[in-house]
Write a protein that binds this DNA or RNA. Structure first.
Length: 223
DNA sequence: TGACAGTCATAGATTACTTCA
DNA sequence: GATGAAGTAATCTATGACTGT
C-alpha cells in the first residue's frame, strides 16, 4: 500500500489532464474506442503524456462509458415496461366490460326461451296477444341492455320478439343452422375462455410480451 | 501483451452546520 | 433574537492509476 502511495505521489503534480488534452482524447475516443498501438504512441507524443497514461485513459473511458450506457438502456427499458403495463391494464378493463355485455346478452337469450316454454304449457302456441301480461318482461329485458353497436341494436330488436318458433331469425342473426345448443356453447365457451385466469395469463405472456416469430428475447437487449 | 472488472486515492464541488459581528 | 457572511467538516463526484484475471 505504501508503495502504491509513493508511486501516486510522483504523478500528483499533474494529477488532472489539461482541458486541451481531454479534448483531444475525447475526440479520438469518438472516432475509435480502442487505440492501435501506433496511434497511441502518436497521441501520447502529441499530448505530452506517457503511452501508458493514454492507454489507461482509454480503458477508464470505455468502462465508464459502458456503465453510463447501461443506465441509459435501463431507463429506456423501464419506460417501455410502464407503457406496456398501462396498455395491459386498459385491455383488462375492456375485457371486463365486454364480459358484462356478453353476460347480459346471454341472459336475454335465455329469458324468452324460458317464457316460451311456460306459454306452451298454459296457452296455444299461436298466441301473440300476450303483451298486456308479459310484454313488461320483454321491455324490462330491453331496457337492461344498452345498444353499443349496430349489431347489438339488431340483437335488441330480434330478442324483443323472440319465441321458441323464431329459430329462423336466430339462425339468420347468428349465422347458425337451427342449432341453439351450438349457439349456447359458443357463448359459454367465449365466456369461459375470457374468465379463465389461466387463459388470461397465457394471453399475457404469449401475446403481449413475447414477440414470437422474431426469435428475439428481452435479455438479448443487453448483449 | 493488452483488455477488462474492480478498486483505491485524491482533487474539487457541494452541502450542512457553526461561529461571529 | 434575527440575519447574513465567513469558516469548516462531512459527503459526493469525477478521474487517474493500479492490480489481478
Amino acid at each position: 500500500m505504501a508503495m502504491r502511495k509513493m508511486r501516486k505521489c510522483k504523478t500528483t503534480n499533474q494529477r488532472r489532464f489539461s482541458d486541451e488534452q481531454i479534448k483531444s482524447l475525447e475526440s479520438m475516443f469518438e472516432t475509435e474506442t480502442r487505440l492501435e498501438p501506433r496511434k497511441k504512441l502518436q497521441l501520447a507524443r502529441e499530448l505530452g503524456l506517457q503511452p501508458r497514461q493514454v492507454a489507461i485513459w482509454f480503458q477508464n473511458k470505455r468502462a465508464r462509458w459502458k456503465s453510463k450506457q447501461i443506465e441509459r438502456d435501463y431507463t429506456i427499458l423501464r419506460a417501455n415496461y410502464s407503457n406496456l403495463a398501462s396498455r395491459f391494464e386498459a385491455l383488462k378493463k375492456e375485457k371486463q366490460a365486454l364480459l358484462v355485455q356478453l353476460q347480459k346478452l346471454n341472459d336475454i337469450i335465455q329469458k324468452p326461451k324460458e317464457q316460451g316454454q311456460c306459454y306452451a304449457q298454459m296457452k296455444p302456441a299461436n298466441s301473440m296477444d300476450s303483451e298486456s301480461e308479459n310484454g313488461e318482461d320483454d321491455v324490462k329485458g330491453k331496457a337492461e341492455v344498452k345498444p353499443i353497436s349496430p349489431s347489438m341494436e339488431r340483437s335488441e330488436h330480434i330478442l324483443g320478439v323472440l319465441s321458441d318458433d323464431d329459430s329462423s331469425i336466430k339462425a339468420e342473426y347468428f349465422g347458425l343452422e337451427d342449432n341453439e345448443p351450438a349457439l349456447m356453447n359458443f357463448v359459454e365457451q367465449a365466456d369461459d375462455s375470457l374468465n379463465s385466469a389461466e387463459d388470461w395469463g397465457a394471453f399475457e405472456s404469449d401475446d403481449l410480451l413475447d414477440q414470437s416469430g422474431s426469435g428475439y428475447q428481452w435479455w438479448d437487449f443487453w448483449s
